[in-house]
Design a protein around this nucleic acid. Structure first.
Lengths: 147, 147
DNA sequence: CTAGTCGTAACGATAGTTGTTACAACTGCA
DNA sequence: TGCAGTTGTAACAACTATCGTTACGACTAG
């Protein structure tokens, strides 16, 4: 059957990376390298750099180049919600309409799009509301509590 | 094809199919064929049959075989919510944890999984709560209103 | 028996994601 | 100034999921 491999793990990895940077900075370091983060996440440094590039464009992280380069947070962990992270890395909505336009001659084919869009808007709003409740500070607190 | 972002259109198509069957039955027909539905959805009949097979296993639709065969609703449109449809066709969660186990020696790598799971559970609950608010009867009403 | 439909396997095409290699651009520091 | 280390990003292969399509056996009303 279908495995969950296709599911979206980007939000998890992005939150992991930012939380890691935040904790590292609180321990006195200025910047974190993509290789250090990749070791913790257990993936390739390029994957981390790709992800952090999006977070940087969204104003959540900053990079320094050259020697002694690396990544730092653009805001404090407490000022970054999971919604901020989600919006930075997930451009598309959770649900989509038909890939091909349904029959406009059919009553259902004609009206189903707007009808579903109204529902999807509500669902997305609820999802965003829920993600906005948690900051990366909350995530870090949970992480340290589990240790 | 639309350059849509790999988003999920299954719920849209499933709702479309069931609503179409419901309206067709209210107009006096006993069963709807996968070809009729596929014409309205603008796709292949096999795609519809595959989808309706899942909805049938979930107890939302029934099929009749042989000559004069086709599909019918197992319950009234008013007794089917979008959550029922969603659960019938979407086995996996919206968000997933890391594809590869993060570094267990790292504090963040060790604790991030449970921390994110707690959030994701809340998000999924909110999403389900929202989908449960709308029945296919509501969808049909909206569809007919738009006409 | 026949015709029409479902149920499902099989296949190619398409698309998205991930891991990887490679390399130019950049900059602190000796 | 030159070196070393890191970012930014292109390129590519591997993998997975999905979709449209063809095909065909199973089934049943008439």
């Amino acid at each position: 059957m279908e495995s969950d491999v296709s599911a979206n793990s980007r939000l998890t990895i992005a939150a992991h990376a930012l939380t890691w940077i935040g904790l590292y900075q609180r321990r006195g370091h200025e910047v974190a390298t993509s290789e250090q983060i990749a070791t913790s996440v257990n993936t390739n440094p390029v994957v981390i750099r790709r992800l952090l590039a999006k977070l940087s464009k969204a104003g959540l992280a900053d990079s320094r180049r050259g020697a002694g380069a690396g990544w730092m947070l653009a805001r404090d962990l407490a000022a970054i919600t999971l919604l901020d992270v989600y919006q930075a890395i997930e451009p598309g909505p959770v649900f989509a309409l038909h890939p091909a336009t349904p029959d406009p001659e059919c009553v259902v084919g004609h009206g189903i799009g707007p009808a579903m869009t109204a529902v999807y808007d509500q669902v997305e709003a609820a999802l965003r509301r829920e993600l906005a409740k948690t900051t990366l500070e909350d995530v870090l607190r949970d992480v340290l509590k589990a240790a």
